[in-house]
Simulated assay, not measured.
Amino acid sequence: MADNFKVLSDGKEVAHTEEPKEDGTTDLKFTGLKPNSNLKYDVYYATGGDPEKAEFSTKDTKPGAPTVQVTADDTKLFVKIVSGTNTGSTINSGKIYYTDGTTAKTMDLKPGDAGTISGLTNDTEYQVQATVTNGAGESPKSAVVKATPVAPTEPETPSEGE
């Protein structure tokens, strides 16, 4: 089926799909649009004529929940945020949430960067989650990752006479 409409933006044809409706109108659908954009199109009937002006804005969307990578060490945790799905604007920040079950704390951390949470108590389990933020807001929290800092073990020294 041939398109009934020709859509131009800055003189260039814009790919679209058309969905005729029972009331005689047609929905034009576009893919690959950037979030937070103000768009202006000239819409022509495929058979010619004067264009109709179409203007609309795209909305931004919050990112999906990221994942958090955690490695335990002596009195510290090494953490890294891995961004999840994001069809919105650029992710500009991240946050680590951690608790020992009694005290909740946070740490700002850019996604992709590694960070260290130090001053923790060995042999205490910590629960860690992360979020990321773009222009639309903060993502849901990641799944909980549990980790327990542990003091290094001393190598056994042979006793005299062995």
Rank of each mutant, 00 (worst) to 15 (best):
V70W: 11
A65W: 03
K53A: 11
T131C: 03
V68F: 12
L28S: 11
V132N: 09
N36R: 03
N86K: 04
G161M: 02
V14Y: 07
T71A: 14
P140I: 01
K62I: 12
D100N: 15
K141V: 03
S142M: 12
E156L: 06
T85Q: 10
G161I: 01
E19C: 00
A65H: 07
S159I: 01
Y44S: 09
V68I: 13
D73I: 03
V79D: 03
E13S: 14
A143D: 12
N134Y: 01
V43R: 02
E52C: 04
L39D: 07
F5G: 05
A72Y: 11
K6H: 13
G24M: 09
D123Y: 10
V79K: 07
Y126F: 10
S159F: 03
D73H: 05
P140M: 01
A2P: 11
Q127P: 01
L109E: 03
G32M: 13
D42F: 13
G32A: 12
T75N: 11
E18M: 11
K105P: 15
N92S: 11
G24Q: 04
T157P: 00
K21N: 10
P155E: 09
K6W: 14
N36P: 04
V79M: 06
G101F: 08
E19W: 03
K34A: 12
G64E: 09
G137F: 07
I96P: 14
T47K: 07
S118V: 00
I81G: 08
K12Q: 15
T90I: 04
D113M: 00
V82N: 07
E160T: 06
S139W: 02
Q127V: 08
G101V: 10
V82Q: 05
D10V: 15
F30G: 06
Y41S: 02
T121N: 06
V79R: 09
S9M: 14
I117A: 04
T87A: 12
E156M: 03
D74C: 08
K29Q: 12
S159H: 01
Y44T: 10
L109W: 01
G11V: 12
D3G: 10
T157S: 02
L77M: 02
Q69V: 13
A114E: 13
P140V: 01
P152G: 15
P63L: 13
T124S: 14
E156K: 01
A147N: 11
P152C: 09
V7T: 13
T116R: 02
K110F: 01
K12Y: 15
Q127R: 07
P66K: 14
S37A: 06
T102Y: 11
L120D: 00
E160M: 04
T71G: 08
F56L: 05
E160I: 05
A54K: 13
T67W: 05
E154P: 01
A2Y: 05
K76A: 04
V150K: 14
T25Y: 06
F30N: 08
F30T: 07
D73S: 10
E154A: 09
A104Y: 08
G112F: 09
V128Y: 08
P158R: 02
T131S: 05
E55Q: 08
P66F: 07
V82W: 00
V150I: 09
M1N: 06
K95M: 12
T67D: 11
A130L: 09
D123A: 13
F56R: 06
P152V: 10
V7F: 15
G32S: 12
D108M: 13
T121D: 06
V70T: 09
